[in-house]
Design a protein around this nucleic acid. Structure first.
Lengths: 225, 225
DNA sequence: CTTAAATTTGAAGAATTTATGCAGAATGAG
DNA sequence: CTCATTCTGCATAAATTCTTCAAATTTAAG
């Protein structure tokens, strides 16, 4: 069962959304502020966030960025404004889609399903030759020894391990880990790769055999099973 | 380079779309009817279709279904800002996204890139008499032995193997591998060809039988299967 | 068989890309 | 606010690839 986090300052809207979605088999969690939502996300599993753009304390754009910092959960923005800059803004910040208010049930459901369909690939944990990566708790182990990774490092390792043998260009890495439209120097990627290798090595994992440099192209994690 | 097929009965709209997209490096193909579009799709590679909903002979919904029958190409519908139920209709039929008219350049591009990013499939591979080339991982094998290629070498081998029996002039090779407008000596091509042959030969693959010199013209990769 | 043109080959410098050390900036916790 | 961590990116060195030249060789044609 998928969990959808509803974030809106109007309780009427929260009720309405839950009314539509609960009968379809979604577990709905209502939060009336971004702050509450963040607190919830940090400790619970959420499959999708429905986020109202216009809220008093923290606006939707800021909230969206904050959510993405914590974990990469798909976000659909609910916006009353149909102005184009906002749409672009949302997509660049990392929103996966947006729905214009007022909406009708069909639009809502179609959008939600579309987003879930294309983002649902999360696994409980990833393992690779003694490495055990738990996305939910942000933990990485090598033979029961924990390797402490920073958020960026973790995101990169996760991306690599779940896409083995695929070469990622630095641009691609930036888009995947930092998000669309973020400008980061290529050398910064190198720095993170170095740190990852270092940490893995120090834990006893032969990083140099698996996290490879593809000269002139990017990096890839090699190896089968 | 990605190819975008533009389908609209209004030539002004076709021109406008192409005007936006061509400078961004997309190859645009304009068709003024769904029928023409279908004919084109059947015989050509297309990465994305921008499809206007309102057209005289065959409407966008029908067209969308017809396109999907031929091949699963991502489709973005261009739809008037008024009709909301249509959005659902489109998504259910198989459209990947929609753009409301009138749109501006930023929205258009953001949408297109978003769709391309999430529909671009990968991990095809090319094989040829014991050779196995994997573009996604930048790997080339001959009978389970890996052959390490540099970026230029890899691009050339990929080009040759995917265009067997076709003669490439040095000028053509430069345009394909280095890109338009890059000035490179013809001899440089020869050097790369030599290095490729050398590496293949050393791995046990009879390169001299397949990567042939066409005297006075260029090079070609020969062979069927 | 001879000659001119094209290609192959060897070698080396040029150019590009990556690794690494380091430090300031940004971020987050208390 | 202060301190610790993380992020970012520069500078330099090291590694790899790219490009070109020129000599040797091969090819096509008369």
């Amino acid at each position: 069962m998928k969990t959808i986090l509803l974030v809106d300052d109007e309780s009427r809207m929260l009720d309405l959304l839950a009314l539509y979605l609960t009968p379809l088999g979604y577990k709905c969690v209502k939060k009336s502020s971004a702050v509450d939502a963040i607190t919830y996300i940090e400790k619970n599993h959420v499959d999708l966030i429905l986020l109202d753009v216009m809220m008093p304390e923290m606006d939707g754009w800021t909230a969206c960025k904050e959510f993405k910092k914590i974990r990469d959960i798909p976000i659909i923005m609910l916006t009353a404004r149909s102005e184009k800059p906002d749409i672009v803004k949302g997509l660049k910040i990392g929103a996966d889609d947006y729905i214009l208010k007022p909406f009708d049930e069909e639009v809502l459901v179609a959008r939600i399903e579309a987003v879930l369909r294309r983002t649902t690939t999360e696994e409980e944990f990833l393992s690779f030759k003694g490495l055990l990566l738990k996305p939910a708790s942000y933990e990485l182990y090598f033979e029961d020894k924990e390797i402490l990774l920073t958020p960026k490092e973790f995101a990169m390792v996760q991306l690599f391990i779940s896409n083995r043998n695929k070469v990622f260009s630095r641009v691609h890495l930036i888009e995947s880990v930092w998000g669309y439209g973020v400008s980061i120097e290529d050398r910064t990627i190198d720095s993170h790769v170095r740190n990852i290798r270092e940490k893995l090595r120090r834990a006893g994992f032969p990083a140099d055999e698996f996290l490879l440099t593809v000269w002139g192209v990017g990096y890839k994690w090699t190896g089968k099973e």
